[in-house]
Amino acid sequence: MAISAVNRPAAADAASPSAAGRSDAHRAAVREAVLLALAGGGTAILAAASMFVGVSDVSLPALLSGSQDAWDIFWISRVPRTLAVILAGTAVAVAGLIMQLMVRNRFVEPSTVGTVESATLGILVVTVLAPAAPLLAKMGIASGFALAGTALFLAVLRRLPARNTLLVPLVGIMLGGVIASVTTFFAYRFDLLQTLNNWMIGDFSGVLRGRYELLWIVAGLTVLGYIAADRFTVAGMGADFTTNLGMNYKAIMRLGLTLVALISAVVVTTVGAVPFLGLVVPNIVSLIFGDNLRRAVPWTAVFGAGFVLGCDILGRTIRYPYEVPVGMVMSVLGAVIFLFLLLRGRKARG
């Protein structure tokens, strides 16, 4: 430092070395936009493939020949399913990213801190007490439970004597385990174990036109997350940084965790839990692009959608003509990828 005399910084100072730095940054931004478009294109190809995988014959020639059956299945089953996968994949990955910044820990996501388990408990409670309640009401109750569960997790964290990086996810997993066992106990007593599985293991095979549309709510929530991206990034730097920059830390935390809880609850009620997604995708994106959410949210959204699309297609083809639920495929793949990331991180850090 101390190279030049102190001058009021002038924006129009084109001759300074910083002008070159800026155009470099501009080139990098353009290059990244192109890469993002390519990745989006890749995801679009997967989405197109997803439209044509299944037991019934929906092929391009069948559609072109104007086969009514093919078109019916296309609009009633294939398109809704693909959209549901994209909506859920995008939202759950972004929710994981937001949660990691809010909790300031890389190894948490809604399904490892009790948020998803609480949402499931909420649905079970409505199913027992008011089985005839409309889906939207179930979603509302599930959201309330998810919020309460997340708040409980944070309250436990605040009481921890030391905030160890590994202790935080462990506490979350234990809390989630306790809530899940309560849920299982009551599901068992009320003979609802089968139904419980529908929410605990994500599965897109039941998605049909008229039964997934509430998922569009998460698209809105994801967009909201992108709009508030800068605030979440600042909150991820900590309370003091946030206050110094003139923002209300607690308000940002509340907004972030509400978004995460709502996304989790809506996804669990419509298609079931999608595990590991919120852990794996944000960690990969962070390694490559960092955590500035303004950049990271679009990448997380694209990779999230692509990852679930890939897993769903794999689940539909691996035992063709039978289906393996996407939640199961993701558990296996996600665990392997996550283990790889953990070990790689350790190597990088020595």
């Binding site: 910044l101 300031r104 820990n105 890389r106 990034t233 991820g236 730097m237 900590g238 940084f241 962070s286 390694l287 960092g290 955590d291 500035n292």
Partner: peptide, 9 residues
């Protein structure tokens, strides 16, 4: 003490 858990340029 400024401990950044996130990756920022």
């Amino acid at each position: 003490e400024n401990h950044l858990t996130m990756r920022l340029k």
